[in-house]
Amino acid sequence: DWGGPLPHRPAEDSAFAVARFYQRGGSFQNYYMYFGGTNFARTAGGPLQITSYDYDAPVNEYGFLRQPKWGHLKDLHTAIKLCEPALIAVDGSPQYVKLGSMQEAHVYSNGKVQTNRSMTGNGLICSAFLANIDEHKYASVWIFGKSYNLPPWSVSILPDCENVAFNTARVGAQTSIFTFESGSPSHSSRHKPSLLLPGVHGSYFSGTWWTSKEIFGTWGGESFATQGILEHLNVTKDTSDYLWYTTSVNISDEDVRFWSSKGDLPALKIDQIRDVARVFVNGELAGSQVGHWVSLKQPVQFVQGLNKLTLLSEIVGLQNYGAFLEKDGAGFRGQVKLTGLPNGDIDLTHSVWTYQVKHWNFQPHLLLLCSHFDAGVQTLH
Rank of each mutant, 00 (worst) to 15 (best):
V18C: 08
N60T: 07
G92W: 08
F64I: 00
G36E: 06
A79D: 05
N30H: 11
Y32W: 13
Y55L: 09
N60C: 11
F21M: 09
N30F: 14
A79W: 04
R66W: 05
W70H: 15
L82C: 05
C83W: 07
A19G: 02
V90F: 03
V18K: 02
Q23D: 05
A15P: 03
C83S: 10
V90M: 07
G45S: 06
E61F: 10
F35H: 13
G25D: 09
N39S: 08
P68I: 05
G46F: 01
T38N: 15
L65K: 13
G26V: 01
L65Y: 00
D75L: 15
Q49N: 12
V18W: 00
A44E: 06
F16Y: 15
G63F: 00
A17E: 13
L76C: 10
L82Y: 07
F64W: 10
T43H: 12
K74A: 15
I80P: 05
I50M: 12
L48I: 05
I80H: 04
R24C: 03
A15D: 04
E84W: 14
Y55E: 10
K74C: 11
D91Y: 09
F40H: 11
K81N: 12
G63I: 00
G63R: 07
F35E: 12
H77Q: 02
G26Y: 07
T43L: 14
G26P: 06
R42K: 11
A44I: 02
Y32L: 11
G37W: 03
T51P: 04
G37E: 04
Q23C: 07
F28I: 05
G37L: 00
M33N: 03
C83Q: 01
A86T: 04
L76T: 05
A17S: 11
Q49L: 07
S27H: 10
Y32V: 05
N39G: 02
I50H: 08
L76M: 06
F35G: 08
A19L: 02
T51Q: 12
T78E: 13
N39A: 12
A41N: 13
Q67D: 07
G92D: 05
A79N: 01
D75C: 08
R20P: 03
R42M: 09
E61N: 14
Y34N: 02
Y34E: 01
S52T: 15
A15R: 02
P47Y: 15
Y31P: 06
G63Y: 02
K69R: 07
Y62E: 13
M33Y: 04
K81S: 13
A79C: 10
V59R: 04
G26K: 06
T51F: 14
I80Q: 06
D54V: 07
S52G: 06
A44T: 01
A86Q: 08
Y32Q: 07
D75T: 09
N39T: 01
